[in-house]
């Protein structure tokens, strides 16, 4: 009598594991493919490829020496001035609202930095009152930075930001013409994208951009 060749029966759970691995690999592949074909639909205008955000130094709203070293936190950077009646208040209001939509952990890793393009009038004390009004979270303080001229001009230029005095007919009073972009810089210090102030009212999409960059 001869024994029939042994039939190896694969236990059912091993088959199940193989099946799950196969499905996971397939889904992963599809996801990867989709991501490569169709990267995250950013709302802001992206820097492709990302660029290193230029560092700069000045004083913060507490008159302490401040150097912007983007490493560590995701940063929304805006160049504005405190005599600005509309765009700057609007921008800071929206950025603060978006901050409030992030999770507590994300808020800890997020900062809003306001650099004055009017350092002559925007003293640290002036900036303190300004960012203290628009930044409503004590845990995630809004920063106001005074960078004196002529360094400011170089800093602005390095970000592609522009500003110029616009006289309103008086010697002591003037308004500033300025670029109105907010720059999003990731925690590694890479400039990832910018939003125009007219885009910021779409809090949901601005938030999604920030959270994507934080990943």
């Amino acid at each position: 009598m001869q024994d029939s060749p042994p039939i190896t029966v694969r236990p059912w759970y091993v088959s199940l594991i193989f099946a799950l691995i196969a499905v996971a690999a397939l889904l992963g592949g599809v996801w990867l493919y989709a991501r490569i074909q169709n990267p995250f639909p950013y709302y802001g205008t992206t820097y492709t490829p990302p660029q290193t955000a230029p560092a700069f130094s000045g004083s913060d709203q507490d008159s302490r020496a401040y150097t912007f070293a983007p490493q560590g936190k995701t940063t929304a950077l805006f160049f504005g001035f405190t005599h600005c009646p509309t765009i700057c208040p609007l921008t800071l209001t929206y950025l603060d609202k978006v901050r409030g939509r992030l999770s507590p952990a994300q808020q800890k890793d997020f900062q809003i930095v306001f650099v004055s393009i009017d350092p002559e009038r925007d003293s640290p004390a002036q900036l303190k009152s300004y960012v203290g009004f628009f930044g409503t979270s004590p845990a995630s303080k809004m920063l106001g930075v005074n960078v004196p001229e002529p360094q400011l001009a170089a800093v602005a230029r390095s970000y592609g930001a522009g500003y110029s005095r616009a006289d309103t007919g008086s010697k002591t009073e003037y308004q500033m013409n300025h670029t109105t972009a907010t720059y999003l810089i990731d925690r590694r210090g890479q400039l990832r994208l910018l939003w125009d102030y007219t885009q910021l009212s779409n809090l949901e999409r601005v938030q999604a951009d920030i959270q994507e960059v934080m990943r």
């Binding site: 205008t45 609007l90 930001a161 013409n177 670029t179 109105t180 910018l194």
Partner: peptide, 27 residues
């Protein structure tokens, strides 16, 4: 272009035709 300058400009008047609406807004 998000990196364009924006300037405020004073004007002498705003005209509203009959039935026309005009909205003043932060942007």
């Amino acid at each position: 272009n998000a990196l364009d300058m924006t300037a405020m400009k004073m004007v002498t008047d705003f005209a509203l035709r009959p039935g026309q609406s005009l909205t003043f807004a932060p942007s």
